[in-house]
């Protein structure tokens, strides 16, 4: 953990690597994105760079993303709740940790009380939170850190080997 934080700090200071484009969205745009991928198994993770458990679970998510990188029906979308003002810091974090799943920044603070319940009536806004959609239908809401066995169960159920 300390090591990770150190790496994180170094990452913030020496932000020289190529930066991933991060789209800044409102909730309607996010809904559109979910709809666009309704023929896939879509894993959406809400996180932020300041959220320690989010950072702790990130390697597991990246492992899954790597494993199913070429699966035609898999898509991972990381929705950052970092402040729009911290976009540079977010991009530095992504570069340093080689996070190559698609990342968007949800800049819709004033309507949290609308879009949090719209994602799931049980969601209280805790981070991290993960939602899985399979062919347009929400099939899982994981409130808190994901575990390896949860991701494995999802993969077993919804992601058959592509070849």
């Amino acid at each position: 953990m300390k090591k990770l934080l150190f790496v994180l700090l170094v990452g913030m200071i020496s932000n020289v690597e190529a930066q991933q484009e991060v789209e800044v969205l409102k909730f309607e745009d996010l809904k559109e994105k979910i709809k666009k991928d309704e023929n896939k198994t879509l894993l959406i993770n809400f996180w932020a760079t300041w959220c320690v458990p989010c950072i702790e679970e990130m390697p597991l998510l990246m492992e899954m993303n790597e494993q199913f990188r070429n699966h035609p029906e898999f898509k991972m979308l990381l929705v950052s709740l970092d402040s729009k003002k911290s976009l540079g810091k977010l991009q530095g974090f992504l570069a340093k940790h080689k996070i190559d799943a698609e990342v968007v920044l949800l800049d819709d603070n004033k309507r949290m009380n609308e879009w949090i319940p719209a994602m799931d009536s049980q969601w209280q806004g805790n981070l991290p939170s993960t939602f899985v959609y399979h062919r347009g239908r929400k099939v899982a809401f994981i409130d808190g850190e994901v575990t390896r066995s949860q991701l494995q169960a999802l993969a077993d159920r919804y992601l058959k080997p592509s070849k």
Partner: peptide, 10 residues
Amino acid sequence: TTVAVGCGIK
């Protein structure tokens, strides 16, 4: 009641 993002209590 309202909901919002915050830091989870561990």
